[in-house]
C-alpha cells in the first residue's frame, strides 16, 4: 500500500460516503503523479472502491484535472467579460510573446503551461491571473516579463 492510497482512504473517511472523496482523491493523485496517468486513476479507483473509467469520467469533467502532461507551472489568464473589458487580450498576448507559445500549449522544455480561463472571481481588479492556483491581480501586459522570468528561475 502506497502513502497515496492511505491518504485517499483517510480523506474518504471524512465523508458520509467514500465516493464523495473523488475530487480530493484525484487532486492528491495529480499532485503525486503530475497528471492523472492510468496508474493514478487505477490507484484512486481502488482506494475508493470504484473503477478507473469512473474516475476518468469525473476527471474529464473538471478543468483543474489533467489527463495529459502539463507544465510544472500553470498560468491561467482570465479572459471573461470583466477582465476582457480591461485588457485581458493584451495580457494573454504578452504571455504568449514572452513564453513563445500559444494559449493552450506548454513550453517545449515542459516548464510552463499557458491557458486562457473563465472567470476566476477577482473581477474588481483585472486582469486576474492564477499562477499555480495563486492569484495575481491586477496584471498588466508590462508586468508579464517579470512574472515569466520569476517562473523560469523558480
Amino acid at each position: 500500500m502506497t502513502g497515496l492510497f492511505a491518504e485517499i482512504q483517510a480523506v474518504a473517511g471524512r465523508y458520509p460516503e467514500p465516493k464523495s472523496a473523488v475530487l480530493p482523491a484525484l487532486r492528491l493523485a495529480q499532485e503525486h503523479y503530475g497528471h492523472l496517468t492510468p496508474e493514478a486513476l487505477r490507484e484512486v479507483a481502488s482506494a475508493l472502491g470504484t473503477t478507473p473509467a469512473y474516475c476518468r469520467g469525473i476527471a474529464s469533467f473538471y478543468d483543474m484535472f489533467h489527463l495529459a502532461p502539463v507544465g510544472e507551472h500553470m498560468i491561467d489568464v482570465c479572459t471573461n467579460a470583466s477582465c476582457a473589458l480591461v485588457g485581458a487580450a493584451q495580457v494573454l498576448e504578452a504571455f504568449e510573446r514572452e513564453l513563445g507559445i500559444r494559449a493552450g500549449e506548454t513550453t517545449p522544455d515542459g516548464r510552463i503551461t499557458l491557458r486562457s480561463a473563465e472567470c476566476l472571481g477577482g473581477c474588481g481588479s483585472g486582469t486576474v491571473v492564477s499562477i499555480d492556483e495563486r492569484y495575481r491581480q491586477p496584471v498588466k501586459p508590462e508586468d508579464v516579463p517579470a512574472i515569466v522570468e520569476e517562473l523560469r528561475r523558480g
Binding site: T79, N80, A84, L85, V86, G87, A88, A89, Q90, L92, E93, R102, A103, G104, R115, S116, A117, E118
Partner: peptide, 15 residues
Amino acid sequence: SSLAGVRSPVDEIYR
C-alpha cells in the same frame, strides 16, 4: 473596441 482580440478557452479546444 476595448474587447478587440479577446479569446476564450473554447478557442483553445476548437482551434
